[in-house]
């Protein structure tokens, strides 16, 4: 049965590895997340396949013949076996926790030359603001990011909770009224990627989808300059907050 379970596990892992699970990778840490997920599959699929194998094997091997009114062997337990299936899962989840923690730290580590983009969720659209060193802020309704430049998103909401998800970055954070939340990414692939609201926010939640553009640094600078020039109304002096009582946790 052990051989059967091993064989089935190999087939199972091969099948799940053949599936293309994730959307495009567009940030430096996207790949870490995908690898972590692959490791999870590698650990867990044999467990699932193993359970299936034992069930199917037992049912075929130990099924009562018609008219068999007998009982099974009165096995009440086995201290050694029970100890094994306490310790082995414990070790597995501990190792996975540590691994996950390392990946998380890597994702959240502040980076030099970070650009801050303020994101504001509103029923039912996202707004963005690019503060610069001179204290001026450029407000836009579309998000453009320079390639290879670390970005920190400072996220908040005006009305109810939204959630700012960029699947290609594998990152998501709730936009909470009265609170500034944040996450960091470094986009490393040019293209258009979707932004999805994942926290139920009312009537238009399903259609609260936008897209962002990752472009070369030079193109980004030109775009920002154009936005800055496109009407003084969009530029305000000093750091401004969109709602009162904003704080960080």
């Amino acid at each position: 049965m052990l051989a059967l379970a091993t064989l089935a596990s190999i087939v199972g892992v091969a099948i799940v590895y053949a599936i293309d699970w994730f959307p495009t990778q567009a940030s430096t840490t996207s790949n870490d997340v995908d690898v972590l997920y692959d490791v999870l599959l590698f650990v867990s699929i044999p467990i699932f396949v193993g359970v299936m194998t034992v069930v199917v094997y037992s049912v075929m091997r130990f099924r009562a013949r018609p008219g068999d009114m007998g009982d099974g062997e009165p096995i009440h337990g086995s201290a050694r076996l029970e100890l094994i299936w306490v310790i082995v899962p414990f070790v597995i989840v501990s190792v996975l926790s540590v691994y996950a923690w390392i990946v998380l730290d890597e994702q959240e580590e502040p980076r030099a030359n970070e650009m801050v983009v303020r994101v504001t969720g509103q029923q039912f659209a996202w707004h963005f603001a690019y503060p610069d060193a001179s204290g001026k802020t450029v407000r836009t309704d579309d998000l453009v990011l320079p390639e290879h430049r670390p970005v920190k998103f400072d996220i908040t909401a005006e009305d109810v909770i939204h959630s700012f998800w960029v699947p290609a970055f594998r990152m998501k954070m709730d936009a909470v009224p009265g609170l500034t939340t944040s996450f960091r990414v470094t986009p490393n692939r040019q293209g258009n990627y979707s932004i999805v609201c994942t926290e139920l926010c009312g009537l238009g939640h399903a259609t609260m989808r936008q897209s962002l553009k990752v472009v070369p640094e030079s193109e980004f600078a030109a775009w920002l300059e154009k936005k800055r020039g496109a009407g003084a109304a969009n530029v305000s002096a000093g750091p401004s907050t969109t709602s009162t009582g904003v704080r960080s946790q």
Partner: peptide, 10 residues
């Protein structure tokens, strides 16, 4: 699973 093992399964 261990309860199934060597039982008389109906």
């Amino acid at each position: 699973l261990a309860t199934l093992w060597r039982g008389v399964i109906h």
